[in-house]
Amino acid sequence: MSTTDFVVHNPVEDLLRQDRVPTIWCPGCGIGTTVNSFAHALLGQDIDLSKTAIVSGIGCSGRVSGYMNLDSFHTTHGRAIPFATGLKLANPELTVIVYSGDGDLTSIGGNHLIHAARRNIDLMVVCVNNMIYAMTGGQAAATTPGSSMSTTTPYGAFEPELNMPQLVDAAGACFVARWTSFHVMQLERTMAKALKKKGLRFIEILSPCPTYFQRKNNLGDALTAMVDYKKRSKIKHGCHTWETALEPGGDIIVGEFVDREREDYLTRMRRQLGSHYSEFPEQTEEEISEGACSEC
């Protein structure tokens, strides 16, 4: 059958800035895979894409905001959540997504993540965890597993790693999930579910880093890492987050761990302020035309 009788078109390409691809990510980097799931999740929803904004920090996964054809902002290192918080508070109509890496969200911007979860601000935070600072040259991050090699830990890291789902759950996020870049379909469903929820939704995605993490630790290439994720993953929905710590060589507990209802920041603020709170009144056409006079 010839392909000329119908149009062959990849739906993901509608969400990409065509002049920016091919991406700068290394061969086998899992971030592009997560972008596929994210794009499919966005396209499958009744979401107004003109009212969707994506914010990211510095790092490999920070490049996502540049590749997605949405309103986007690439912030300074670790400050994606503060920027997104301001964006959401100034324009509550927007669906704001923070797409960033583990070094950006939990190491440099760690405090912001904790307090965003405490306030339960209506953001969707996607954290691509490649267990190392990849773009800056392979330094150890807070998520680097104990005894792993990196540029700054030539004798192996002495520090135990941070368990992100536990941290965010304890701080009060209303939705916490973890998948790996191997679980593309599950990730798409989880992202679609998270996009509809209100409050802080946190999704951690484990992703291979063939250039730094796999290479420094003799873990093979990206394909080996993906097959390894397939073998070691155990799906446990609703699992207590203190049982989800990642151990080198041990099981990777994945699934949707927390899904609860909790009042988000804006609702709480409005309730507490009551009659003192008022939205800006909508400008009439006269006011708009007065505001934009021809002389200035």
């Binding site: 119908f6 990849n10 691809v21 592009g32 593309v184």
Partner: peptide, 18 residues
Amino acid sequence: LCGMYCPDFAIFGYKYPA
């Protein structure tokens, strides 16, 4: 599924509609 896994958006599968 190849399209979902491809990190570089270089491949995608489609079904024949007819």
